[in-house]
Design a protein around this nucleic acid. Structure first.
Length: 263
DNA sequence: TTCCCTTTGAAGGCC
DNA sequence: GGCCTTCAAAGGGAA
């Protein structure tokens, strides 16, 4: 367990990473959470490559070693649900169960879950108190209380399939949280982002393949589903209007360019 | 109660 | 084709 000094005092690297930390990558954390991520911390996503690295191939692509048979692709848990006309809540559960089993399978080479398995992919999430991002599929247990209209709408919301990085975060978050005293997801995600960049291409390929499988499964379960369409058809009345990304970015500290961060 | 923060990747719209 | 925007997860904190 890493016990980090009070936020106002320390600069902390990813406690796990074997990669070399550039001094500018060390980030002091201010005493308050807002503003806890100084400019040096902000990765300029406009200058950093946001990619599926060229060397990372998916199964079937030339870059993927022939021997790297992705267990997820042929995972027996993957079933073709067949044509789907309507979207039912149980499909959320089925989809989620599929993906959790895939992640589980991936993490342990097809073996049963080991001790370090992320709780999120092993069993229903613990009943923490958090009130949002619970997800439409998270209501596996404790559904005795009648749902309000808003809750029902939220429950029926079809979420986007997780991308490779999201799958990686889901799997690794618990171990990062366990190894340090940080609890803020924003800070945890920064660490995970750096670890993701330091990840070996073959390791990343695992998650890209898993993400592709997830998209395929999602397409099978929800043919014709579009995140944008759902966004447009979902009424936002009664909820606060979310700031646009531009507005949100404007509120942030200036970000360092890639060149600046190299200095 | 809802949004913000923070990360990467996918996808759709627009020019 | 490139850019922009949104949203997937997570949970503490702010509004």
């Amino acid at each position: 367990m890493y016990h980090l000094p009070p936020p106002s005092q320390y600069m902390y690297p990813d406690p796990f990473s074997q990669m070399q930390w550039h001094p500018s990558s060390m980030y002091p954390v201010a005493s308050t959470f807002r503003g806890a991520y100084p400019g040096s911390l902000h990765v300029n996503t406009g200058t950093l490559p946001r990619y599926s690295p060229p060397g990372i191939g998916l199964p079937g692509s030339p870059a993927m070693p022939p021997h790297h048979h992705h267990p997820g692709i042929a995972h027996p848990a993957i079933v073709t649900p067949g044509p789907k006309q309507e979207i039912h809540p149980q499909d959320h559960h089925r989809y989620d169960a599929h993906m959790n089993s895939l992640l589980l399978h991936e993490s342990h080479g097809g073996q049963p879950a080991a001790s370090h398995q992320s709780p999120s992919s092993q069993q229903p999430p613990p009943p923490h108190h958090h009130h949002h991002h619970q997800g439409a599929v998270a209501g596996g247990g404790g559904g005795e209380r009648p749902l309000s209209k808003a809750a029902l709408k939220k429950k029926n919301h079809i979420k986007k399939p997780l991308n490779a990085f999201m799958l990686y975060m889901k799997e690794m978050r618990a171990s990062v949280v366990a190894e340090c005293t940080l609890k803020e997801s924003a800070a945890i995600n920064q660490i995970l982002g750096r670890r993701w960049h330091a990840l070996d291409n073959s390791e990343k390929a695992k998650y890209f393949a898993l993400a592709r499988r997830e998209r395929e499964l999602h397409m099978q379960l929800y043919p014709g589903w579009s995140a944008l369409r759902q966004l447009r058809f979902s009424s936002s009345s009664g909820t606060k209007k979310r700031k646009s990304a531009r507005q949100r970015l404007q509120g942030r500290r200036p970000q360092m360019s890639l060149q600046e961060r190299r200095i």
